[in-house]
Amino acid sequence: MSDVPNRLTVVGERQLTPTQRKLLSVLTHTLLLAVSVFMLYPLLWMLAASFRPENEIFSSASIWPSEWSVDAYVRGWNGLRTSFSVFFTNSFIISGLSVLGNVLACSMAAFAFARLNFKFKNFWFAMMLMTLMLPYQVTLIPQYVLFRQLGWVNTFLPLVVPKFLAADGFFIFLLVQFFRGLPKELDEAAQMDGCSPWRIYWKIVMPLSMPVLATVAIFTFIWTWDDFFGPLIYLSEMKTYTVMLGLRTFTDSTGESDYGGLFAMSVLSLVPIFLFFLFFQRLLIEGIATTGMKR
């Protein structure tokens, strides 16, 4: 991991004696570790549960399993008629395409709202915000009817195409806030040199916005991965299921459920999004700090 100490720290701690600095560091780490434990306990419990014998999961109070077994993983992976490898592939396809779509389409829309002037801009922005406010439960059925007429039901299209059409106002709004924070002089200078808006967007704004674009990528990937309601409504065949949808079929409140399998697969389902996060968060850190942007 790039652990480049940024200049803020160097500046901020210049006034401290070495002993003070050491003390501060120890204190910070202690605090962070304490919070980490609090944050992570539930996850550790889940990890332990995935190695526990089935009938011990809900009756045993201790976090340590009486015996360790990887049965649940083996059982879970092929526990449904379709193997989890299929679900993972589907989730990767949907999440990957969604990241691409959101980064491109939302940044374009945000660029227009943040850096360009045109008639009725505020009206369209308000419309965009409005789409954020309506609970999805009431647009679900009209939307289903629409996608059905398009013949998209039981394909990935209803889950992916809206991302390429900037349907998620959250990301547009997020990018708008960041694009507006970039120094104005940059595009003014570029404009003097005869740059087109497209070049300003592609050559200046986008490269300078790596941290926030990484944020968009991370959130899109994770949220798409975690989403189950969209896949639940639009996907019917098991071979098109996503991981989250697969997970939900492990438990049914009316009959036999496989909780061990559920926990085991839950743990596995976290691995890709965690790795995605680890990888993309480097862009968060590097971003501005390493481009050496100055006002």
Binding site: F111, A112, L116, N117, T131, P142, Q143, A167
Partner: peptide
């Protein structure tokens, strides 16, 4: 330029979003 940059959003808004709303 503004409207061109918003084109994908407009297609989505009028094609997919506004109807159900």
């Amino acid at each position: 330029p503004g409207y061109l940059f918003l084109l994908p959003w407009f297609i989505g808004f009028f094609g997919l979003t506004i109807g159900p709303i």
